[in-house]
Design a protein around this nucleic acid. Structure first.
Lengths: 215, 215
DNA sequence: GTCTATACATAGATAGAC
DNA sequence: GTCTATCTATGTATAGAC
């Protein structure tokens, strides 16, 4: 009888779960929930099919776990937006963080986009609770800036939709972007250029163009 | 023997194909290619399953036909952007047309988004030929405006990505938008408000804010 | 805890009567 | 041209040996 030490066993468990989650994120991103197969996820994780079922009993369980791991990333960038911060600085930081997220976690962005696109049934609570509250809070901050004459008057909740749309576009629609630009891939320096352009565009759109100097 | 008159038979044929295409567009939009079933498409079209196979031999054929019917819609709005037009007017018209497309054809937008999201294998020629050429042409028009000092200096090809991202967001991510705004649905007047906000934001972002008066 | 073999369900596609 | 019945493939999930 080969008994595995508890600490070690726990590590293997976590390690395998992590491998499966990473593989699943990629496969779900590339083919959607229905298109993804356990076989492909297992192969991509370097594990036999039944092993995936051992850690995540059903495909839906696994999908929910992937979504969960994404949602924790999703709200973080908005932390920079506070009443006391300089509007232009705060919004520029936010946009940069969102662009960085698109560059580093394109699969996460695609899984999220796919879930929303198909009705968002699995993340309804996140949308109606966490995200909604967050947007209300941050929109209130922007409204304060507008009242103080520090920003152009806009419907502030839509400002977030626009920033999400633009920044996530570079992850979700990357094939279209690369094809239209005739680029094989978008490297870090491409993202730096794009990020600077997006920051300038959005800040100008919000009437914040004169406040910052650095791109 | 019941022979159907040729003209009439042609009409039934077109009518059934149209019903199937409409139903397929909706089902593909809601569940993606893999998630869609012929049974659901047939039910939604009010026809038996085998009838769908009669008109479109395979699921992929049907999917391609749906995409084809969308692509013809996709390039039209950019026609308003010409060297002689007033920059602000032309861009405002373009944005309004794209927002209207999102309002009227949300399923088409979702099918397109889904296809891009999953690699765009079925529309690669469209992306690399038609769309790429169109963007190059229209970006050149914008570059001309910039040279003439009529618009702020920006990377003009990305301007199109931004406008697509924002306007299509209201179709593709409608569940998120509605949930965050706590609205059951977005009516025509909601779209009118949003469109005006988007037009103002984008024009200001492009340095065109002073040129137009009407929202 | 791992993995092979397999049961079971679903869905794409087709044969053939009408 | 329409539709029922069915074939076949694929993929989820599980049983059971190791």
């Amino acid at each position: 009888m080969i008994a595995v030490a508890p600490d070690n066993s726990g590590r293997i468990r976590r390690q395998n779960q992590e491998r499966i989650l990473d593989a699943a994120e990629r496969v779900f991103a590339e083919t959607g929930f229905a298109g993804a197969t356990i076989a492909e996820i297992a192969a991509s994780a370097g594990l036999p099919k039944a092993n995936v079922h051992y850690y995540f009993s059903t495909k839906e369980d696994l999908y929910r776990a992937v979504l969960q791991s994404i949602l924790t990333l999703w709200l973080a960038p908005a932390d920079r937006i506070t009443p006391d911060s300089d509007p232009a600085e705060a919004m520029a930081d936010y946009i940069r963080a969102k662009m960085e997220a698109s560059r580093v976690h394109p699969y996460a962005s695609k899984v999220f986009a796919n879930e929303i696109l198909h009705g968002g049934g699995q993340i309804q609570p996140f949308l109606s609770e966490d995200l909604r509250r967050r947007v209300e809070d941050k929109a209130a901050v922007l409204d304060g800036w507008i009242s103080g004459g520090r920003m152009a008057p806009v419907d502030t909740r839509h400002v977030f939709f626009w920033i999400w749309a633009i920044t996530q576009h570079y992850a979700d629609f990357d094939i279209q972007v690369r094809t239209v630009l005739a680029r094989k891939r978008l490297a870090r320096r491409d993202f730096d250029h794009i990020t600077a352009e997006v920051v300038r565009f959005v800040l100008r759109g919000l009437g914040l163009e004169f406040s910052i100097q650095q791109g």
